[in-house]
Design a protein around this nucleic acid. Structure first.
Lengths: 212, 212
DNA sequence: GTCTATATGTTGATAGAC
DNA sequence: GTCTATCAACATATAGAC
């Protein structure tokens, strides 16, 4: 009965509020006062639960990083044929990002501005060290590429360029949404429509780029 | 003889230092003291020349935004055939970003975290309003796509998806460099090599994705 | 124009009542 | 566990000498 009075879920409220504020303002731009207000609690309570801004920021970053990549990496590691994987990754990622539009920009900012985040990111990819996971994915994709190339179904491409191209096409539009929206002059509805079209067209575009 | 004593170029020194610090730390993360130190001048001098941190940050952002996009947009607007444009944009952008690796992450951060930047960005695209420039580029590309489709050289694709795909493939790897480097476990040399390969392979990949 | 010294304002964090 | 009040540290900005 240690945290008896926390059925109200203050801790969860705080974390949710922190997610919102950190993702919009970045770690340095976020204010503890704003988080407290957003959570509807007193600022002192943030420190009671999370001790410091840095720790709270760590918690938020970790959960964000875990949301962004592991599902994709697991899909890429599965036994499905390559074209199916592409199809699934596009759907999975675009769906996730439509629900969490600020995630990519936030993760990119953090990773660029706070070097220590890189190691945290690596650990967040899975329980294990990235040293095993990243390369394992790339090896698996590489094998499948080799098969497809041997069968005459695909031009040769390195596994890392394959993966980089795929996630670039999925994630960048969300990270750069303000730019793109300005350039193409679309409002929120137009944006949603554009993303929906993208879900359908992207797999064909991506796989077409690899035809022999 | 108003700024007689500025042949030493203190103002330029400050701006250069500010660029460096803002691009690495973001607007909120950057410290005026760090900029002063980096520039080798006193902190009061920053205010003498730029009045406030906000104005200095504006100057830096503007120059960064101007470096990132206008050359690409002008290339896309030119009279060259579509495949040539793709080739040129890839070279141009990858070269620029190799020289300024932090640019994409910085611009993305700013645009996501500071809403007022969006309007500044729009103006920075060219002397004119983006309201004329962005759509003009898209219209021109759209025409060329239509021609290629009519000639049976290309699958149909909207002009905005065309441009989004192209800049995604060029810019994202730099914005997400820490992620990608962690995933693929490449060091600085490996990174450079990967980008060089990319310059050669990307145009074919991109155009291949549009074959009928 | 450029510096030192200092004022002013924020912000993260703690003490202590309830 | 949760709050109010307050502290200590830092960051931006200004005053004023040179």
């Amino acid at each position: 009965m240690i945290k008896s009075n926390d059925q109200s879920g203050k801790e969860a409220q705080i974390l949710a509020a922190a997610r919102k504020v950190f993702q919009r303002r970045g770690t340095s731009g976020a204010r503890m006062a704003d988080i407290a207000e957003q959570a509807g609690v007193n600022q002192a309570l943030l420190h009671y639960y999370f001790r410091s801004k840095a720790r709270l920021a760590d918690a938020v970053f970790l959960s964000a990083a875990r949301e962004l990549f592991p599902p994709v990496l697991e899909t890429l590691l599965s036994d499905a044929p390559l074209p199916d994987k592409v199809q699934r990754v596009v759907e999975l990622e675009l769906d996730t990002l439509q629900r969490h539009p600020y995630l990519p920009g936030y993760v990119i900012s953090e990773l660029n501005q706070h070097p220590e985040r890189v190691a945290q990111f690596a650990r967040a990819m899975t329980g294990q060290e990235i040293s095993s996971f990243g390369p394992r994915v790339l090896r698996r994709i590489g094998e499948q590429i080799d098969e497809a190339v041997a069968a005459g179904d695909m031009r040769s491409i390195t596994a890392d360029q394959f993966v980089i191209n795929l996630i670039s096409l999925c994630i960048f539009p969300f990270a750069a949404r303000p730019m793109i929206a300005a350039l193409t002059q679309v409002d929120d509805e137009g944006w949603t429509a554009m993303i929906e079209r993208r879900k359908q067209e992207l797999p064909a575009f991506f796989l077409g780029g690899l035809k022999p």
